[in-house]
């Protein structure tokens, strides 16, 4: 009489486990090849590329916009969507010129981005210094961390 032992029972296998194992292996490979930086770097597909930071009280959106004047920029906020629109027009006054290199491009741009955090729409400030645009959006009151005081009773 054969007595089935518990250990010989086929274990339940998650069919997706194998994919998960491959994904982890690939993640490890890319991490080794490119370092940790790849972790949060992403490439923009729409101009301008943005860097967004979070501080305890605000959200900071930053973009490099060399050669763009403040009046050529249009920033708007609609509920949770921030839109940066503008036009870059760099004119060289001289008429009779021969170009050796032409790498700086001119044109229109329009980028909208959904904000990950609720912000206070009345307290947005933007500044353009040396070609860097910084938009500071204060977080809405209720999303700011609130310290809870514990009273000993």
């Amino acid at each position: 009489m054969a007595i089935p032992r518990f250990t010989e029972k086929p274990q339940f296998r998650n069919p997706w486990m194998e994919f998960e194992r491959i994904r982890r292996g690939l993640d490890k490979l890319t991490k080794e090849a490119f370092g940790d930086e790849l972790h949060y770097s992403s490439h923009a597909s729409v101009y301008p590329p943005l860097n967004i930071f979070e501080t305890p009280n605000s959200l900071i959106v930053r973009a490099e916009l060399p050669g763009i004047k403040a009046d050529q920029l249009d920033i708007s906020l609609e509920t949770d969507t921030l839109t940066i629109k503008g036009k870059r027009q760099i004119q060289h006054q001289e008429s009779k010129v021969s170009f050796h290199r032409r790498e700086i491009e001119c044109g229109n741009f329009n980028r909208s981005i959904g904000l990950p955090i609720k912000i206070d729409p009345d307290s947005i400030s933007a500044k353009l210094v040396n070609g860097i645009l910084t938009i500071t959006l204060n977080k809405a009151e209720k999303t700011q961390p609130r310290r809870i005081v514990i009273t000993a009773g």
């Binding site: 916009l65 060399p66 050669g67 760099i90 001289e94 021969s98 290199r101 700086i104 070609g131």
Partner: peptide, 22 residues
């Protein structure tokens, strides 16, 4: 930095994009 370089009869002009530099 990306640049534009152009020449006129009397001068050579180099324009370079350097955001964040004062």
């Amino acid at each position: 930095p990306t640049v534009d370089i152009f020449e006129t009869e009397n001068e050579v002009t180099v324009v370079a994009e350097m955001p964040g530099v004062d």
